[in-house]
Amino acid sequence: MIVGEQKPLAEIKKTVAPYKKLLILGCGTCVKTCFAGGEDEVATLTSALRLTLKKDGKEIEIEELTIERQCEDEFIQEAAEAIARNDAVLSLACGAGVQDIARRFDKVPVLPGVNTTFIGVLEKQGLFTEECVGCGDCELATFGGICPIARCSKRLLNGPCGGSKDGKCEIDPDIDCAWQLIIDRLKTLGQLDNLRNYIPPKDWRSSNAGGPRKLVREDHII
């Protein structure tokens, strides 16, 4: 999923300050799962924002709404009327959602309420970890299902650097050394020899280094 984290209340307060009527728009998919922008977070944020603004002697009319996904027009249109009757939208979706709302409502300011952090998983209760950078050319088969591009601090493709100690990365003792994980896993799978081969430089054209990416599915174009 796309993992995000709600922005600090003080920052949100500052961004919404110029507006009288605000729609806080939640997204019911990824950011809901990571407790950043679903229905519950919209409700909590609305109360918190009302309270803090009241303390400051400011009045903003806040409307709440959560749609299934802010990255698909079919769902976005469900918010059209609510968007039309407000001065601005505070979107609690990921960066893609914020931009898709902005794309479809060109006269309404759309403000981000969430910092989009990474593509990751819920490793365990309360812990989300980054697993994928969307490089566009998946090589997980070589690395035993553990991505060195997303999970090695130096994105090394040919083995661990000299800073791997007791399974941890030198930059932070809380970060697992991806290469230790790769080696352990390949050992279990009996594929350690995979790592003897030289991995040539990656072709980054499939990543965002090649410019903004598009995916065209001719078979889906009507």
């Binding site: 040919n158 083995g159 661990p160 000299g162 791997s164 007791d166 290469w179 230790q180 080696i183 030289y198």
Partner: peptide
Amino acid sequence: AAANPFADPFEYRVIRLAKKIDA
């Protein structure tokens, strides 16, 4: 190139040295 005989994972250190030499 550099090599660190003391880093972990120890069993991989020689494989990595081999890769550097082959390169």
